[in-house]
């Protein structure tokens, strides 16, 4: 028992509840979609641009209440904007979500109303600029904690979440659009799904055997495995038949979306698992300490 104190955790598990993994998903959707929409606008693919604009705005708009609901004191959500701190990914993220969500929803409203086009373009531009950060900062958000699997996965998490968010954006658009309009979205979903799977592999490899455990064992392991399966199957289906068959596109996209949602849950839960069991905190730190002694 000299490894820990009655097997109790050394650090605290996050207090975050179900809203957060869903937000990780919707935020990713919002960020990825904003970029996708702007790119489609530039490429002249208006339908894709419009769909992704709406998707992005929807993602942003549900994100905010999710985050607020998770607060212990929801009525104080505006305190998030009291300060801006680069040392706090949550602060940075709040501002990013505030700006990008504001921009994307403005753009979406103006799009439906078909009014004030220059303002809409400006809003789209702003939302697109903030889309990338919105999709990736959540990686930093998790990694910037003492939760072992998150903190040690800090090199990969932004990539993983960036890829996941973009895959989500792609898959969501590919789900809603007919295949002939959905080429870029589908390719984005396939490519980013592959990138996401790769990032996950790299991360699990790099954090080492011990810290990869939560991604293999327990609930978080199951979620992660299910996620991989869905993403791989969905991306495969999209690549194989997504171009020809609407139903394959729908099926594939749905699988990718489900997989990305599961990924967020898997990572989320893996963090809890690694915080809960003191060995994940103690053993790597002890190794580090002893090698420095």
């Amino acid at each position: 028992m000299s490894d820990s104190y009655y097997g109790r955790p050394v650090i605290k598990e996050p207090t975050w509840t179900w809203e957060i993994p869903i937000y990780l998903f919707t935020g990713g959707l919002g960020g990825g979609s904003a970029v996708l929409s702007a790119a489609a606008r530039l490429a002249g693919n208006e339908r894709l641009a419009k769909t992704s604009l709406y998707l992005g705005a929807a993602g942003d708009v549900v994100s905010a209440p999710l985050l607020i609901a998770d607060l212990g004191r929801p009525e104080r959500f505006l305190n998030m904007l009291r300060v801006f701190k680069v040392t706090s990914p949550m602060s940075v993220g709040s501002w990013v979500l505030f700006v990008s969500g504001g921009a994307s929803s403005t753009a979406a409203v103006l799009e439906t109303l078909d009014r004030l086009r220059p303002v809409k373009y400006l809003a789209e531009l702003v939302s697109a600029l903030f889309g990338g950060p919105l999709a990736t900062y959540t990686g930093a958000l998790l990694a910037n904690t003492s939760v072992p699997v998150w903190h040690e996965g800090r090199h990969e998490l932004p990539w993983l979440f960036g890829a996941s968010g973009t895959a989500t954006a792609g898959a969501a658009a590919a789900l809603l659009l007919p295949p002939e309009e959905a080429g870029p979205a589908r390719r984005l979903a396939i490519g980013c799904a592959a990138a996401e799977l790769a990032a996950m592999e790299v991360m699990q490899h790099r954090v080492g055997r011990l810290l990869a455990e939560p991604y293999r064992k327990g609930l978080s392991g199951q979620l992660t495995r299910a996620s991989k399966l869905c993403v791989a199957a969905g991306a495969g289906l999209l690549a194989w038949k997504g171009r020809q068959s609407r139903s394959a596109a729908v099926g594939g996209s749905t699988l990718v979306l489900a997989g990305e949602m599961l990924l967020r849950w898997g990572v989320f839960k893996a963090g809890f698992a690694s915080a809960r069991d003191p060995k994940y905190t103690v053993l790597p730190q002890r190794q580090r300490r002893d090698s420095n002694r």
């Binding site: 889309g131 990338g132 990736t136 932004p158 984005l188």
Partner: peptide
């Protein structure tokens, strides 16, 4: 971590 995040954000744009 911020550097990785910025790179990844850039990569998102590039990917798209």
């Amino acid at each position: 971590l911020w550097a990785q995040t910025a790179l990844a954000a850039g990569a998102v744009v590039l990917g798209v």
